[in-house]
Simulated scan of single mutants.
Amino acid sequence: MTTQAQPSATAAVRLPRLISPPGVYAPQNDTRMLARALSCEVVGRSTSLLDLGTGSGALAIQAARLGARVTAIDISWRAVWAARLNAHLSRQHVIVRHGDLETALRGPSFEIIVSNPPYVPSPSADLPSRGKARSWDAGPDGRALLDRICDAAPSALRPGGVLLLVQSALPGTEVTLKGLTDAGLRPEVIDRARIPLGPVLRSRAAWLRRQGLMGAQSWEELVVIRAEKV
């Protein structure tokens, strides 16, 4: 069973300097928010943790530094090799595997699952199979991966286990909260931040507004959701 330490809204987490080759998601604001949420969990040597969609391995390495037994998984072979290299350079033991969401959540259960999945709404319903956009495109409503995580994560958590998930508010924070509740978890938003629109969202701003997914604002809200299996 995991417990949550007293969070600090101003707590800063120093992430390691990592190699992020082209096509592999480099740590950004959402990564740092999720790392801060992870630092508020009580993690020990017996804590089993899954980093779902590890990218460069930033969160997996941070979890290993906290003492967790870490498994990291990504559908991109380039991300797998980057995460393995970064774990080696950081002198942290992380098991990094290649696989999709179903592969990751099949088999042994975990006490903590962390995930920074693709969540950016995209004009195309087809998810990219390669390239940079694979790290963020998530279908017209941005929920292609979020809904699957809501459905599948509970079965991969041990009783008392915790899912830590970061997403933009554009795909609907309340939709995620309801999905996790319906799946048997107890979710809550534990962190929020408004950040300026990045290049991808700026390039899609007109389309997002036509779809009713964004107003006239020049910022995006990121949220971290903590969902406990009771």
Rank of each mutant, 00 (worst) to 15 (best):
Q6W: 14
P7F: 03
A9Y: 11
A12C: 12
A12E: 14
V13F: 08
L18A: 05
I19A: 10
P22R: 00
G23Y: 00
V24G: 00
Y25Q: 05
Y25S: 01
A26E: 13
Q28G: 15
T31S: 13
T31K: 05
L34Y: 08
R36Q: 12
R36V: 00
A37I: 04
L38F: 05
L38V: 09
C40D: 14
G44W: 05
L52F: 02
T54C: 15
G57P: 07
L59A: 06
L59Q: 02
I61A: 00
A68F: 11
T71Y: 06
A72D: 10
A72K: 04
D74L: 11
R78C: 04
R78T: 12
R78E: 15
A79S: 13
L85K: 10
N86P: 10
A87K: 01
S90M: 08
R91M: 05
Q92H: 08
I95R: 14
V96R: 05
H98I: 06
D100R: 01
L101N: 02
L105K: 04
R106M: 11
G107M: 00
G107A: 00
P108D: 05
E111T: 09
S115C: 15
P117W: 03
P118S: 01
Y119A: 00
A125Q: 11
D126C: 10
S129H: 12
G131L: 07
K132P: 13
S135Q: 06
D137K: 00
G139V: 06
L145V: 15
L145G: 02
D147S: 09
R148L: 13
I149K: 09
I149C: 07
C150K: 02
C150F: 03
A153D: 07
P159W: 04
G160R: 07
G160A: 10
G161I: 01
V162Q: 11
L163P: 06
L163D: 09
A169R: 14
T173P: 03
T173H: 05
T176I: 12
L177A: 14
K178I: 12
A183E: 02
A183Q: 05
P187Y: 06
E188F: 07
V189T: 07
I190K: 11
G198I: 07
L201N: 04
A205G: 07
L208C: 02
R209I: 09
Q211L: 05
G212I: 03
G215T: 12
A216Q: 15
Q217K: 08
Q217M: 07
S218G: 07
W219E: 15
E221L: 04
E221A: 06
L222G: 08
V224D: 04
I225S: 07
I225K: 13
A227N: 02
A227D: 02
A227P: 00
E228P: 03
